[in-house]
């Protein structure tokens, strides 16, 4: 029956040893191990999610790059088209401006020519009248016989001058 009756000495020592063992392990062993195992599990979880995110991001990145390249190419085409348009526009505008300018210059030239012509005509008339007066003076000095003949002569001379012009 000794098998089934607890022995006081052994119970006492078991109680003491187990309490001391529990205190030692609970203070110096288990908390550190539990903390480390928990932290490492968290770290591994974080690492896995990070890797998954990175992978998906990488896939996204190639897609994004493709999209960006396409966009850039389209933009390039647009810019080229715009540039061509602008070129033709500028040329057109330049041409228009040039014609306007040319017309202005031509008009100005015409006006000055007209003025010059009028001026020269005026001078010419003055000279003619001077000449006529000089001729008339000469004629008067030479012979003052017939008034009729004289005036005819003057007329003739004048029309001659005019015809010459």
């Amino acid at each position: 029956m000794e098998l089934f009756t607890p022995d006081f000495g052994l119970v006492f020592w078991m109680f003491l040893v187990f309490v001391i063992l529990f205190v030692i392990l609970a203070k110096y062993a288990w908390p550190a191990i539990m903390k480390s195992v928990d932290e490492r599990a968290d770290l591994i979880d974080k690492g896995v999610t990070y890797a998954q995110e990175a992978k998906s991001q990488l896939e996204h990145a190639t897609d994004n790059a493709r999209v960006l390249i396409n966009e850039a190419q389209q933009k390039q085409l647009e810019i080229l088209r715009e540039a061509a348009q602008m070129k033709t526009q500028i040329i057109e505008e330049a041409r228009k401006a040039a014609t306007v300018e040319a017309k202005k210059i031509i008009d100005a030239a015409n006006v000055s020519i007209e003025l010059a012509r009028k001026e020269s005509e005026r001078q010419f008339r003055q000279q003619v009248s001077d000449f006529a007066l000089q001729i008339a003076e000469k004629l008067v000095r030479k012979e003052l016989s017939g008034d009729k003949q004289q005036s005819e002569l003057v007329d003739k001379l004048l029309s001659d001058i005019e015809n010459k012009n």
């Binding site: 063992l21 030692i24 392990l25 191990i33 480390s36 490492r40």
Partner: peptide, 19 residues
């Protein structure tokens, strides 16, 4: 038990996140 687990705890303290 102490000889097994106290050095183990020390190992964990020395190697944070170590396996």
């Amino acid at each position: 038990l102490c000889v097994c687990f106290i050095p183990m705890a020390r190992w964990y303290r020395k190697h944070p996140n170590g396996a």
